[in-house]
């Protein structure tokens, strides 16, 4: 699967993620908004799908960091987290991440996905595991193509 990242994951990006995502300073959502939407505009797709966060994260962090960054972009909220409480990936090593079961479920009937060109968006791309599982699910449902982008890799 083709993946494109806007920026390299370096100390500055780490600091940004720390403030925005983990310390929850939602006002910082706009920092890369313009750049991300410009990238999305230049990619052929039918629908843009953000990687979801769990119900628990919505009740604690209070926002989906990807949705926040894409303010103004039409999004299709077709994925959700299958497990009731998603374990935070950042606490796992590479091997543990790759071995995880399919974490996502479809929110909509697969009829709506058949033949669609889908663009997945995440904040940070590390092992590719998240994108792999999401794309897998979408292809199984009949998606025509699945591409992915992230803010940083």
């Amino acid at each position: 699967m083709r993946h494109r990242a806007l920026y390299q994951y370096n100390d500055v990006m780490k600091h940004y993620m720390q403030q925005y995502k983990f310390n929850g300073d939602y006002l910082l959502k706009g920092v890369f908004n313009h750049d991300l939407i410009q990238l999305i505009d230049n990619i052929d797709k039918d629908i843009v799908v953000p990687i979801p966060v769990s119900h628990y994260t919505m009740q604690t962090r209070g926002f989906n960091q990807v949705v926040g960054m894409l303010d103004g972009q039409t999004l299709s909220d077709i994925l959700s987290i299958a497990a009731s409480k998603k374990d935070h990936q950042s606490q796992f090593g590479r091997r543990e991440r790759m071995n995880r079961q399919q974490p996502f479920a479809l929110n909509v009937s697969s009829q709506l996905i058949v033949g669609q060109r889908i663009l997945l968006v995440d904040d940070v791309y590390t092992t590719g595991n998240t994108m792999y599982h999401a794309a897998n699910l979408l292809y199984q449902a009949g998606a025509k193509t699945v591409k992915s982008i992230s803010l940083a890799r």
Partner: peptide
């Protein structure tokens, strides 16, 4: 500052960990 779904958080003491 606002969060989605009518939630909000305090920016004054954010450096000590967010209160929302």
């Amino acid at each position: 500052a606002p969060l989605p779904n009518d939630a909000f958080y305090c920016r004054a003491c954010l450096t000590l960990g967010r209160v929302s």
